[in-house]
Nucleic acid binder design. Structure first.
Lengths: 363, 363
DNA sequence: GTTAGCACTCAGGTGTTGAGAGTGCTAACA
DNA sequence: TGTTAGCACTCTCAACACCTGAGTGCTAAC
């Protein structure tokens, strides 16, 4: 368990096995190991050490006459103690910076580009999450006329999140009612958090107090609540799921491929898993994950905007992945996003602006 | 070529072969055919007919000693002349109606539900497209303050389409400038079509005429253009891509599966294909499609809102699919969407409302 | 025109075999 | 006592042969 159980040589051998296995995907034998990594000991000695390592749980054996394969425990040790996370060369860094700068003024496209970079550079499936926050407060609510029986509901939160939705009405509306509704709802919910508003008994408040609006409210409130709910739900974007076909562990095994893709298709489940991970860079390997991901690894990191935690991005792939490279890519990308959107602030704010929300109060 | 070339018996045999092959996926032999469909002729006779049909291009032979498989031409004939598109029983219809009614007031979720229904009931990959229209005209443009260096751009079109995007500014803004910008842009572009606005030289107009706004314009106009572009681009939603794993033609063939999924992952390409199809129910089979879909079939149909063409939905799968059933499902769903959003109008409009856009003119 | 009979074809499953890569054990060596 | 060479053994994998079943095409008889 404790890496101190392992003497220098065992560690060296383990590292060599992991490195070889990660690049080739083939079980590593004693002879080929002694050839590729010249460490001045014979295959027989390596075999003895391997046997010990297996007993300690760091290696496994697909079958008697196969080479050794690192266990999840070995990957854990590797990730914690052995791996090199500074594998990004200047060209890679340049590539990341360039692509992210392309869309520096728009958070949304920056995020999309980040996902693309991530799957391209790791050759794995990447995802990006824009978590919505319960605590984010409403700023204004607005209903816009579209045609005789359709309106658009628009909700803006203080943190800049905007959500809109077309609503079909069952009874006709008047322009005045619509404006009144916008005003009343903005007045009632401005400054309140999304979750707080969702907990209120909204329909009732209209039927009781505002006779004239109750018809409109019947149509509009359910959609309003659904829209709030959608604002709370994190939005998951995925990229490069067909990358798995280039991995030998999948390309031979239809069963596994199918399982992987079905897992990805259940977005709610996956979102849940990602949302509930620890902050910062987090790596979970094989059986550290839940049952349905037990031979996959997950690496995630957070990105910030204005120093505030806003989202999470990461990759998912087989336990055999280039942890060092992948981790450095993820780190570099997330830091870069965070920095881009932080630097600006420091440089740019020369003048404080008035932000009392008055723009919308008269609409 | 002409189905008149085929006598009654040939047609009957061809139909039987197609039916068998669609359900089993196995090449159909003369003996098994004569057993399953009792048509009072011996296998030998069937063989002769099959041989004729093959010569005419309706059947093919995977190899000498295999049964016959329908060609794309046969499917074409089947779809045009033989298939039964009234295969939906009341339970299925009920299921569709119920699910679509769940979200009757919101177009967006209705569409999502439609996609789910479609892939569930056909066991294929479904997609739904919300085409944006070049001709849709802008209604208002609004910039909303978020924090000291972020604003949200919101564009509303006359047809109810709303698009928003967070923009990071490189230089600070004032509340007044923001409001002015909203007013100016709304004034300039209101009533113009998206494509017309995109063709205009927007930045120039600011640097020349509006000195005070030129800084803000520098930051904001590129994002404005990108957002317009996004409004033009159709938004493709897909569902059930892992359904292909249950199909024998894929589950044995990794190559094919990979090709299929890679094709689906290229959304731009796929969107293009779908956008450019004919109106109404359209079925394209095998080599009637482009090279990369030459052993797939595509069925699409349009749905309307207020009698106006707004979107398209469909499925994609192997040429061996239950054309009758699938077509009826697609038809029923698209009709149902269209009807839901048409019926309402007829029932509900008792009062004409004022729609001069004045709500936003003073914001 | 239809059918029975028969020779022929071919994919796919099964069994066998040999090569190759690897292990574990033992005995010798430093 | 740790290291190594040697060797028997194991297991996968690819190649090969073989068989079976399903199917065809052809021919001759009905």
């Amino acid at each position: 368990m404790n890496p101190n159980d392992l003497n220098e040589r065992k560690l060296q051998i383990l590292q060599a096995i992991i490195a070889d296995f990660i690049t080739t995907g083939e079980p590593v034998g004693s002879r080929s190991l002694s050839k590729s990594h010249d460490m001045g000991i014979s295959p027989a000695t390596i075999r003895n050490e391997m046997s010990d390592l297996e007993e300690m749980g760091y290696l496994t054996h697909p079958h008697t006459s196969a080479g050794r394969v690192p266990s999840d425990k070995a990957y854990r040790l590797y990730v914690d103690e052995l791996m090199d996370t500074s594998q990004l060369d200047e060209a890679d860094k340049q590539k990341i910076r360039t692509k992210l700068l392309e869309s520096r003024n728009e958070l949304d496209s920056t995020i999309e580009h980040a996902a693309e970079l991530l799957s391209d550079m790791t050759n794995l499936t990447s995802f990006v999450l824009m978590p919505r926050k319960d605590e984010s407060k409403l700023k204004y609510i607005n209903f816009l006329p579209v045609d005789s029986n359709t309106v658009v509901l628009m909700i803006v939160a203080e943190d800049g999140q905007v959500m809109n939705r077309a609503i079909r009405l069952t009874s006709p509306y008047t322009e005045e009612n619509l404006q009144l509704m916008s005003k009343v709802m903005t007045h009632n919910y401005m400054g309140k958090s999304i979750s707080a508003v969702m907990a209120m008994d909204i329909i009732d408040s209209f039927t009781n107090d505002m006779e004239s609006l109750s018809n409109l409210a019947q149509d509009v409130v359910p959609s309003f609540l659904k829209t709030l709910e959608k604002m709370l739900n994190a939005d998951l974007v995925m990229n490069g799921y067909s990358n798995i076909f280039s991995l030998p562990e999948f390309s031979g095994d239809m069963q596994k491929t199918q399982q992987f893709l079905r897992m990805l298709e259940d977005k709610n489940r996956l979102t849940d898993v990602i949302v509930n991970r620890d902050k910062g860079v987090m790596i979970t390997i094989g059986d550290e994950n839940s049952e349905d991901m037990k031979d996959l690894s997950l690496i995630t990191a957070d990105y910030r905007v204005n120093g505030e935690l806003v989202g999470r991005l990461g990759v998912i792939g087989p336990t055999r992945m280039k942890y060092g490279k992948v981790t450095s890519v993820i780190k570099y990308i997330s830091d870069n996003i965070s920095q881009t959107f932080e630097l600006k602030e420091k440089n740019d704010v020369k003048e404080e602006h008035n932000d009392d929300g008055s723009t919308e109060a008269d609409s």
